[in-house]
Amino acid sequence: MKNISSQSVLLTTSEIPLYAANKRSKPPVSNGVIGMLIFLVTEAMFFAALISAHMVIRAGLTEWPPWGQPRLAIETTALNSLVLLVSALLMGYSRRLLQQDKISSGRRWFGISILFGIFFLLSQGYEWVQLLEFGLTLSSSVYGGLFYLIIGAHAFHVIGALSVLIYAWNRLGSSKNPITPEAVFPLQILWYFVVCIWPVLYVLVYLS
């Protein structure tokens, strides 16, 4: 009998939201978003270090790209960059739909955004294969070393971000243990970061 009464008390208290009594007790930003922002500060410093290394090495050499090294596919990569930017826009649109509790359509646009990201990754991978065939390797020159280091670091981030986004997309629509749109937001911020850092790298590596 004692057990039943304590259980009923537990059920009653669990239904009361803790922040209902005081509005200010609700945090303005979720812990996931704060954690992701701190992580992205460290990521930005990582890319800043790579950019600094590129700038210093590039400044010390008179001929850039070095003689005998293949030229990078500027036009194709520009198109890929556009695809990546569209992916971020679609991610923002899906975020708005998810905020309006339009889970089904939000999830659809979320998935399309992921597909654009996958297209970017595959297209860049194809470009890498071609460059390797033309003789640009990690050890062929400092040009190749910097290219694979910087663009490879970004590609690694794209793969990581896409993996967690696919996982979130899958959980978003599942009937068993679904993920909330608020829980998806930190991962969307990660994708915005990956997209926003790309134009900087493109200008630095491809156009400079």
């Binding site: 410093m45 800043a48 600094s52 700038m55 210093v56 400044a59």
Partner: peptide, 14 residues
């Protein structure tokens, strides 16, 4: 001179 400028720029950025 370019290397020196690059060092200054990257120091400011970082």
């Amino acid at each position: 001179e370019e290397t020196l400028e690059a060092f200054y720029a990257t120091t400011i950025i970082l």
